[in-house]
Write a protein that binds this DNA or RNA. Sequence first.
RNA 1: CGGGGCGUAGCGCAGCCUGGUAGCGCACCUGCCUUGGGCGCAGGGGGUCGCAGGUUCGAAUCCUGUCGCCCCGACCA
Length: 596
Amino acid sequence: MQRWSKLFIPTLREAPADAEVASHKFLIRAGYVRQLAAGIYSYLFMAQRTILKITGIVREEMDTIGQELYLPALNPREVWEASGRWSVMGDNMFRLKDRKGADLCLGMTHEEIMTDIARKELRSYKQLPQIWYQIQTKFRDEPRPKSGLLRVRQFTMKDSYSFDLTREGLDKSFDLHDAAYRRIFKRCGLEFVAVEADSGSMGGSQSQEFMVYTDAGEDLVASCGKCGYAANLEKATSQLAVEADQPATASGAREKILTPGTKTIDDVAAFLKVPVNNNMKSLAYVMTDEVKGQPFYRPLLVLMRGNDQMNEAKLGGAIGGREFRPMQEEEIVKYFGSPAGYLGPVGLPQVTLAEEKGKAAYAGDDKAFVVLMDKALDGRKNLVGGANVAEHHFVGLNRGVDFDVTTVADLRNVVEGEGCPKCGAPLKLGKTVEIGHIFKLGTKYSESMGATVLDENGKERVIIMGSYGIGVERILTSCIEQNHDDNGFWLAPSIAPFTVVVVPTVMKDAAIVEAAEKIAAELEAAGYDVLLDDRDERPGVKFKDADLVGIPYRVNIGKLLAEGKVEVVERAGSKKTEVAMAGVLEHVRALYNPRA
RNA sequence: CGGGGCGUAGCGCAGCCUGGUAGCGCACCUGCCUUGGGCGCAGGGGGUCGCAGGUUCGAAUCCUGUCGCCCCGACCA
């Protein structure tokens, strides 16, 4: 049992002005955390207690499928060079030098270190499969830390890695994680969805994210209430309504039209009286490419329907993970010979598509464009597009006649209400926070770093890996986002810093204090984490604090004691019940039994 | 990286425009009072006005630089 009067729980009546989201405000107000710098927080007593409970649950579940390790956060450059990520990670990686001038970094994730152990130690297929996990601090120099503990530069991650000989083995390791993650999040009291996701810069094939719906989220998830389909916007697709094409021009060929002052798609559509989606908008980018090891910038043109939004993750995937950025004004003039607003694919020099080690390669000089077309434009006729001449657009554009494309790909963002790709029911879009991510890495790291074993035929085989993460603090923040009101928040008893707070309303009343002590001791003995609010404060202060700090159950001992009763309050829903002294334990146990 | 905002007591803010040596509420300390939803009264402690430089007799206030923090954007050409 802990006594509030002895603890450091610095609650605040007001939240700092710069706190925006609920979890940030309440973590500060409830005395859980204090900020040290942008995206760097100190966890005080209450936060640390719940973090320990969360990691306790994570550890219990992970121990059923793997083994816990603990790896260095301070990493030498060499390990990250071995995988190629020393340069890929860019400014997101914290870097430093030791006294000898050698480069070090702070780990953002631990594929490299785990793979390094595997390549040095694993020799035989008989040692596989392995699942190794750790709970470690991760460091990421986020370009923009925000929303309290939601996007930070230092945080706790449970990360695990699986090592298998076969694809089937990887599938099994993946499924084990999927099941363990569901158990973990459920035990933490979270509502979550598992969604198809983009595997991003980590590389890999199948990828699944665990998301929590909250307005504080940064990711959009498209989901179908009918069949259960759910996917990150970076991956989501939909069934689109068929749209009517424009009739061909009178001549049957494309025609160049003067369209003065029409710099946006909407302007053009209105001017020509053509539906926006019969317009083809041209987005200009430059991408990094290389020929024979020589890197250079290559122009990239993306063709989309007028109303559609391009998704950068999808674009990145469509160009094989090459880096890209929007073209700047001077570059537009240089590559297109036209000012922005009138760009189109007609007459541009274009690359040819080659195949290199199973990866798409582009052949052509540095003036040659890669032209990508969104799938929604596939088969469309007589489109409107820029003429690469100021104040002019073409009508009657047709692929194969007026222009060619390098690749057709799904590049657009799904819009709410479009048909589910599986069952056709309308899709919903919701903001979410990512709390976990599991994916099949394949051989990306084991191959580049040389992690191999001998199989039963004595043949060298590259280990097949998976990588799996959980953001520990995000479990806490998500719980608060999902369970709060104006007065504070409540956590699931499994992760709350205390399960019950016992509140004697008047400390000068010996009978009340005695009864409170008795009840607190009784609950403690029954396995509850009990906080006794023995502060000499007015009842109102104690009640306000109790509501604020996330404890799911409260027992008030006060004026009802004259009748031999106390009051049990369930924080979620604020349900109050009068209970006889002797029945308190039984009543609370019916709400939650820590030993069940 | 682009744009915007803010740095004055632990928290929330005023003062700055129009320079004259810093204030309010909450919190904190002492005493009295009160005791079921942040009670009341009295007294008290606490601030390099983010930092550096400049202008001035004099700078929280004006100027320059710098650091920090927050928000928006970094797809619709």
